[in-house]
Amino acid sequence: MCGRYYIDEETAIELEKLVKDIDKKLNPHNYKGDIVPSVAAPVITSHNQKLEAKLLSWGFHRFDKKGLIINARAETIMEKKTFKECLSTRKCAIVATGFYEWDKSRNKFSFTHKENKLMLMAGLYDEEKRFVIITTKANDSMEPVHDRMPLILSQKELKIWLNEEKETQNILTQTPPLLNRHTDMEQMRLEFF
């Protein structure tokens, strides 16, 4: 679930507004387009209650060093050694315009936030400067395509997610907002006489 997302120009501008003192070396406009596992992308973290943007690579290394772990399930995250420490000390929000998902017939769909241009997906990062996206059970807008989806944060929840550990469990169990769903290939209906 959630193996590709994207950032457009407007989202890069929104990130600059949200993180006031963005490091000039981390120009979010350089990271537009599709983001796939293993590439570097901007994420939001917090240091001393202040939002920061960092450039991290998508995917934790697997223990056997054969591939990457790109997602973490919200329901089991507290039980997994790989994620447990990160959950208390290294939470982040992944910045996106939207994400892609494919249904069982391999039709590609894009999902965007209904109310905001900026989508914030809950995530974790490790000491190697790598991140994963937290996923949860699909809501009604996602379920026809896939049974999992990213855990979406509102802008109000962003600082709470990053800074208030006592609220972590509440956020992990919430249902994400409904999303816009679009595909370039709409189903054609043929009428036979």
Rank of each mutant, 00 (worst) to 15 (best):
K104H: 11
F193D: 15
K54H: 02
I171S: 06
P37R: 02
R62C: 06
R106K: 15
S88P: 00
L68E: 13
F83Y: 12
L26K: 03
M185H: 14
K114A: 09
N170C: 07
K84N: 05
K159M: 10
Y6W: 08
P150N: 08
K159P: 03
R181S: 11
H47S: 14
G98S: 04
V95W: 11
A74Y: 02
T76K: 12
E143R: 14
D103I: 01
N170T: 10
F60H: 14
S57W: 00
D126C: 12
L56I: 14
I171T: 08
Y5D: 07
R73A: 03
E186Y: 00
R181M: 14
V132L: 11
Q169Y: 00
E167L: 06
D64A: 14
T82H: 10
F60V: 13
E164G: 05
L162N: 02
V39L: 03
T168N: 07
D21K: 05
I70S: 12
I44V: 12
L190E: 11
N48I: 07
H146Y: 06
P42Y: 01
I171F: 02
K32Q: 15
S154H: 01
T135P: 00
E75S: 06
H61S: 15
Y31M: 04
R130K: 11
M1V: 08
M149D: 01
L158Y: 09
E101M: 11
L190F: 15
S38Q: 10
L87W: 06
K32R: 10
A96W: 08
S110E: 15
E164L: 06
K20P: 00
Q187N: 02
L26D: 05
H61A: 15
I35Q: 06
E143D: 04
P150W: 06
K108V: 07
P176C: 03
A72C: 13
T175C: 04
L56P: 13
R4V: 04
A40L: 04
R106L: 08
V95A: 10
E16L: 11
E10C: 00
E9F: 07
V132F: 01
S141R: 04
P144M: 08
K91H: 03
E127Q: 15
G3M: 01
R62M: 15
M142Q: 02
K114P: 00
K65T: 11
F109L: 11
D147S: 13
L162R: 02
F99T: 06
L172E: 01
E186S: 12
N116C: 10
L56A: 07
H182V: 05
H146W: 05
Q174T: 03
V39P: 02
D184K: 10
A53D: 03
N71S: 08
K108S: 10
S154Y: 01
I69H: 10
Q174L: 12
F109Y: 15
S154Q: 04
Y100I: 11
I134L: 12
T175L: 07
K156E: 14
N139M: 09
R148K: 13
I35T: 14
Y125C: 14
N48M: 09
K114C: 04
K32M: 15
K54Q: 12
L55A: 11
H113I: 08
K114V: 11
E127H: 14
H113G: 04
A53M: 05
E14M: 03
D21M: 00
